[in-house]
């Protein structure tokens, strides 16, 4: 690993000030550190945001669950409040990677990195999440812009993610047997007015499957999805899964998620 300057600011303002085109925020480090070790990324400044107290923690209100950016997956997975308000979110966090990853990885790191096979982005999309940054509030839909791309601007820091509490929700995942990232992850959330089916792992970026969402909005049952063909065009094809297999899993896991709701 190349040498770098390490900073551990106490508040968001300082963190933001330190940011430049050759810096990175450090949250759980589960992505940043391996990519630095492998020489895939080099930074002059590493800005550790874990010392900023206000970035961590879980708040539940009547309508939403707000999770601070540096809250670890294990904290979400085991939070009584999350389990009560949105059990699917706790389940999602509890199935991320392995114990080591869950004990370090954070929600802010996960969504800022926007790995095409990460789990949280699908929850953000399905639960109409609002991403709070130090500059503005961004709807999930506008936040995830492409493969490893987000709407975040240089120096912009995710502070928290606010999830809308649905009536029902479930997350189903077909893990990559090696890394245990999602080959396919389907987050189904039934809100008062409509249903969102968010899919991760299938394409270069998380998305809402409009057809499945529409169908379930009119009839929320697994049988409603029977015979609905998910198209494989545009889906990822790699050594772990072909596009055809992924398409099969999307419709299968959408059904499973509805059944589990």
């Amino acid at each position: 690993m190349k040498s770098f300057n390490y900073h551990a600011p106490k508040d968001v303002k300082d963190a933001s000030k330190l940011a430049s085109s050759s810096s990175a925020f450090l949250a759980g480090g589960m992505t940043t550190i391996p990519s630095m070790k492998l020489g895939l990324a080099n930074y002059k400044d590493i800005i550790d945001i874990k010392k900023i107290k206000k970035l961590s923690g879980i708040k539940v209100s009547g309508k939403s669950v707000t999770i601070g950016a540096t809250t670890k997956h294990v904290e979400v997975a085991t939070s009584k409040d999350v389990k009560k308000a949105i059990p699917a979110l706790a389940k999602l966090a509890g199935n991320i990677g392995d114990a080591q990853v869950r004990n370090r990885g954070t929600i802010g790191g996960s969504i800022s990195n926007n790995d095409p096979s990460a789990c949280y982005p699908s929850a953000c999309m399905a639960l109409n999440a609002v991403i709070h940054t130090n500059k503005r509030k961004i709807d999930a839909e506008k936040f995830f812009t492409g493969m490893f791309e987000t709407a975040l601007k240089s120096g912009e820091l995710v502070e928290a993610v606010e999830f809308q509490i649905p009536e029902k929700a479930d997350y189903q995942k077909h893990p990559n047997p090696a890394s245990r990232y999602a080959i396919i992850g389907v987050f189904v959330a039934k809100h008062k007015k409509d249903v969102n089916v968010a899919v991760t792992g299938a394409k270069s970026c998380v998305y809402i499957d409009k057809d499945l969402s529409k169908k379930l909005s009119s009839s929320f049952s697994a049988s409603a999805l029977e015979g609905m063909d998910v198209k494989s065009s545009g889906m990822n094809s790699d050594m772990h899964a072909s596009a055809e297999y992924r398409a099969n899993l999307v419709s299968l896991y959408a059904k499973k998620a509805v059944e589990a709701c």
Partner: peptide, 23 residues
């Protein structure tokens, strides 16, 4: 059931880490 060493046709090892090689 799991371990799947794969080279591409140019001889690059595609499964050169635990992110891709299933133990």
């Amino acid at each position: 059931l799991h371990e799947n060493t794969q080279y591409d046709e140019t001889g690059q090892l595609m499964t050169a880490s635990y992110m891709d090689y299933t133990m």
